[in-house]
């Protein structure tokens, strides 16, 4: 049976989403995308530096990938909505990752403003993927607001600290009837596998790949880990026990 994740009417067979920030050179991004086998790639929108080099990240992204511009830089719902309009006008489709941040130290998202922006943009037919701190009531509000998925953080952006919010994410997976995509904080492939084993629908990784010594190799490692974790979830891990339970028969030999 095909294992497909459907978001905004698109069928995804790969569950690793890739962020494109912080890479040591843009020129390696095509190889990173190839090794990660990702189908969804995030980008940001910024003012052009009139006196400097003009960067166009889109030149490095495979045309078959779904672009998911983020609203980074937004501090309010209103600013996030403005950025979403700009992204759509630029011809990048209608997927948008809502990211509203007022906290410069931990970069934690403003859940309240994020819900407001989600509500507005979902009504305008955007496929809205909000980045939030994991909280059941917030996630329920996002469902009502018309989100296409919920993207809880595992740890602060760029921290590489793994699933510090694991129990709260588990509750979202259990209770929320939308794809749950763990975004932010995943630092190692084992942590991506851990998220997928517990039933996350996908993970979004940027820093862990971009800042690895060899991002191209690390992209492949994350691809395998996400696949392994997903397969383990579908296979249904056996129960944990406190005491030992022999794997070989204990009778019928020597005594």
């Amino acid at each position: 049976m095909r294992d497909v994740l459907t978001i905004g009417g698109k069928e995804l067979t790969n569950r690793l989403f890739l962020g494109t920030g912080k890479f040591p050179a843009k020129s390696i991004i095509p190889k990173v995308i190839k090794n990660s086998e990702t189908q969804v790639v995030t980008v940001a929108i910024r003012r052009v530096d009139l006196n400097g080099e003009q960067e166009n990240i889109l030149n490095y992204i495979d045309k078959d990938c779904i672009l998911m511009p983020n609203t980074s830089g937004a501090r309010t719902a209103e600013e996030a909505v403005r950025i979403a309009h700009i992204a759509r006008a630029a011809g990048c489709g209608n997927w948008i990752k809502i990211e509203v941040i007022n906290d410069n130290k931990y970069l934690l998202p403003d859940n309240y403003e994020t819900i407001k922006a989600t509500e507005i943009l979902a009504k305008e037919d955007f496929v809205v993927l909000p980045y939030v701190s994991p909280d059941l009531m917030v996630a329920k509000a996002l469902v009502n607001a018309g989100a296409a998925a919920v993207m809880p953080l595992g740890a602060p952006i760029g921290s590489n600290r793994g699933l510090k919010t694991k129990e709260l994410i588990r509750i979202l997976i259990d209770e929320i009837d939308l794809p749950i995509i763990v975004d932010a904080g995943i630092g190692k492939p084992s942590q991506a596998a851990e998220a997928m084993e517990m039933g996350a629908d996908a993970v979004l990784v940027n820093t862990a790949i971009a800042t690895a010594d060899d991002p191209i190799k690390m992209a492949a490692a994350f691809n395998f880990a996400v696949k392994a974790g997903r397969l383990a979830y579908l296979a249904g891990p056996g129960a944990e026990k406190i005491h030992g339970e022999a794997s070989s028969p204990l009778t019928g030999f020597l005594r």
């Binding site: 494109t20 920030g21 843009k26 995030t42 940001a44 003009q54 990240i57 983020n70 980074s72 952006i157």
Partner: peptide, 26 residues
């Protein structure tokens, strides 16, 4: 502004222009 509007939009005093593009981001 739509792309096709760029060539017939003449800049005038006090106009505000934002020139944006896509960059790497997570």
């Amino acid at each position: 502004l739509k792309r096709e509007e760029w060539s017939n939009t003449i800049l005038k005093e006090n106009d505000e222009l934002e020139i944006l593009n896509f960059v790497g981001g997570g």
